[in-house]
């Protein structure tokens, strides 16, 4: 009797396992295996054309002493600080402004989202045309005011902000859409209650709207942190990391080490560090906002 019940239970567990098996397989092959083999690779001095030798943590020690890598880490953090808060705030502002049923808002929503579907090549091409000092849109505007042109992409202080601006323009669609979806979930009668409670626009925003979309704001911040730490294409195409590594992000560093200098063990170690930074940043956000509620 008891044994039969146990048989039935284990039979159920088996068929349950069969249901998750396909996903588990994909997860193991495409995520866990590369992760583990990446860690393994980072402990070797390895060349892209074969030949590898176990060297323990030497790659990591080298990284901590590598000025270019340290600069890349700092650049990337700076870039994330430039983009993530701006994407969140502008995304929310656009969502608030366009969260109504008018035709104009529908058109504008589509327009703001449309940049997201462009490929990085086109986006950077457009922004190069805006930013280049001779014949660029901004340069022409400045010239018409008899002001000297500004070399955004070749000035060490302006290169990263220029890349950040391009990125914000490119990526604003997703946060806006996520916030719009969240705003439509807020029950309309809460706003009516607030109107009867004499709450003005600003107070309604602070006390009714924002608390209601807190979870979405967290999702937006975490997603954008994860995305923006992986900055690559814009920097590669617009500045090549220059001038003087002023706009070199971690992923571009990894690319140059791995695929131009073929030192893939070293590149793998840098990847692991990037992975840890992203994990830590996202988790901090997540825990901080959970602690507050």
């Amino acid at each position: 009797m008891k044994a039969r019940a146990r048989d039935a239970a284990s039979g159920e567990a088996l068929s349950g396992a069969l249901f998750v098996a396909p996903y588990l397989l994909v997860f193991l092959v495409l995520l866990v295996y590369p992760l583990v083999s990446g860690i393994w690779l980072s402990l070797h001095k390895a060349d892209l054309f074969g030949g590898s030798q176990y060297i323990g943590f030497e790659n990591y020690v080298r990284l901590f002493k590598d000025d270019v890598f340290r600069k890349a880490v700092w650049n990337t953090c700076y870039f994330v600080l430039l983009t993530v808060p701006a994407l969140t705030v502008i995304g929310l502002a656009l969502a608030l402004a366009l969260n109504n049923g008018t035709r104009r808002s529908a058109v504008l929503r589509g327009l703001f989202f449309s940049s997201s579907v462009l490929s990085v090549t086109i986006v950077t091409l457009i922004w190069r045309m805006v930013l280049v000092p001779d014949g660029g849109l901004i340069a022409d505007l400045l010239a018409s005011l008899h002001l000297p042109s500004v070399p955004f992409l070749s000035d060490a202080r302006l290169a990263m902000p220029a890349v950040a601006l391009t990125t914000i323009w490119w990526c604003i669609g997703l946060p806006m859409m996520l916030f719009l979806a969240a705003l439509q979930q807020v029950p309309k009668d809460l706003y009516e209650a607030a109107a009867l409670d004499n709450a003005g626009w600003w107070r309604t925003l602070l006390r009714v709207t924002l608390p209601s979309i807190r979870r979405t704001a967290l999702v937006v911040v975490v997603i954008e942190i994860i995305l923006q730490f992986q900055l690559f294409g814009q920097a590669q195409i617009m500045t090549l990391g220059g001038p003087n590594n002023a706009s070199l992000p971690i992923v571009l560093f990894i690319y140059q080490i791995g695929f131009q200098r073929w030192d893939i063990g070293y590149a793998a170690a840098a990847s692991e560090i990037l992975f840890c930074i992203i994990l830590a940043a996202a988790m901090t956000q997540y825990l901080a906002s959970r602690g507050r509620s």
């Binding site: 029950p187 009668d189 809460l190 009516e192 209650a193 006390r207 608390p211 209601s212």
Partner: peptide, 8 residues
């Protein structure tokens, strides 16, 4: 309100 509309 029918749904009460309390601020959650």
């Amino acid at each position: 309100f029918q749904s009460y509309a309390l601020y959650p």
